[in-house]
Amino acid sequence: MATVDQAVGWRGRLEEWLRERISVAVSEVTAATALAVLFIALSLASPYFLTADNLFNIGSQTAVIAIIAVAQTMVIITKGIDLSVGSVAALAGVAGAMVVRDLGFSVWEASAVAVAVGAAAGLVNGLLVSFARLPPFIATLGMMSAGRGLVFIVTGAVGVYSLPESFQLLGNGVIAGVPFTIVVTAAVALAVGGLLSQSRFGQHVYAMGSNLEAARRSGIPVRRNLTAVYVLAGMLVGLGGVIAASRVNSGQPNYGIGLELDVIAAAVIGGASLFGGQGRIVGTLIGAFLIALVRNGSVLLGINIHYQQLIVGLIIWAAVYFDQFRRRRLESRG
């Protein structure tokens, strides 16, 4: 009898464990499946899809979305949202282009400048959220407008052109056959993924998003940490912005309008919860790839850009609805 009981207990425990793992990764698995389906469908539907040029293009397009979506994910985990990513990316990209054109900076120095610009914008967002206690939606909505205003002011609403070829290295360069952008994205994903899942700081980020009061009472310096999250996110947005500028070898003041939707969609598709406390970089990468494929596929299949907007909108609804559904089900179990 005892052995039978043990067997049941063992199997029951395995089942419980599996159910737990699946419910943690369910968004990621769903998104990955959708991604695979879309990838196969596009390779069948368009003869250009699987060409080296197109894949390279998707790679670097994914890279910018992915890096900025990683930033967005960090913010979303804290129960925040960053609407300013498009404006800040444009500001950082333009700043990078301008220091190359006007001061003769190298592409690496320009990247550092862009990252610093992003960090500064992130610092403002972070201070507004954690010290002025503005809701993240409002704080970053303000930055979205202010940043866009600033980029138009400094450029006079004209793109920054006549940059040396070398500026393209970041966005279009190749290392050992791999697009440079992919290498950068992988490094960013590994670093932030490790930070979130393995470090004390990352643990506190999840805790703050899950229950801010509990985090505070546990002695976690929530304001400082929250500010740090926005600064880090801003740095990544700055990096994404300068990569985008490098890809087109110019600084575009119009860049990134509507980008926040793509990256929020990428994060949410990948399992980040707008209710805070959940989200993983793996999922966000899948989400970013999916969004990039939707964009790329639409172009290949000659789908009107306005339909692309429509599709992204539908995806956001579906992903958030799914997240809510999952949360409710979990809570009703408790």
């Binding site: 899950s210 509990a214 406390g277």
Partner: peptide, 24 residues
């Protein structure tokens, strides 16, 4: 232990036990 519990729902049991006192 406050009435509203003050646990972080999204974190594991172990992470909650060590919240703010994590072992490095």
């Amino acid at each position: 232990v406050y009435q509203d519990l003050a646990v972080a729902d999204d974190l594991s049991v172990a992470a909650n036990l060590y919240l703010g006192r994590e072992i490095k």
